[in-house]
């Protein structure tokens, strides 16, 4: 097997995901998406919410390491 298998897989995965993402946004313009709350009906709202939530979760988690992370043998000491 080639050494850059994972890299090429990652690249094609990224490509397809971006295409699907673009299609989902375009689809939003073709019909009126009914939601329980009117502000969620803005074009691409779930997409925006998903992206921002994900970045927020990872970044806040990373920051929390300062307070929550200890050495692997912390409880054995």
């Amino acid at each position: 097997m080639k050494k850059n298998d994972l890299k090429s897989m990652g690249k094609s995965f990224t490509k397809y995901i971006l295409i699907i993402g673009a299609l989902l946004i375009l689809l939003d313009f073709t019909f009126h998406r009914h939601e329980y709350f009117s502000f969620a009906e803005i074009y691409g709202f779930p997409a925006f919410f998903g992206f921002v939530s994900f970045v927020f979760i990872v970044m806040l988690g990373k920051w929390l390491r300062k307070f929550l992370m200890r050495k692997e043998d912390y409880y054995d000491q």
Binding site: G21, L27, R33, E35, G44, G50, F54, V58
Partner: peptide
């Protein structure tokens, strides 16, 4: 349709966020 598109947008763009990070 509303529900499927809404959920897919959330998930796909969260994956895009992961790839971005």
């Amino acid at each position: 349709l509303d529900h499927v598109i809404s959920q897919l947008q959330l998930l796909v763009f969260a994956i895009i966020a992961f790839l971005f990070l």
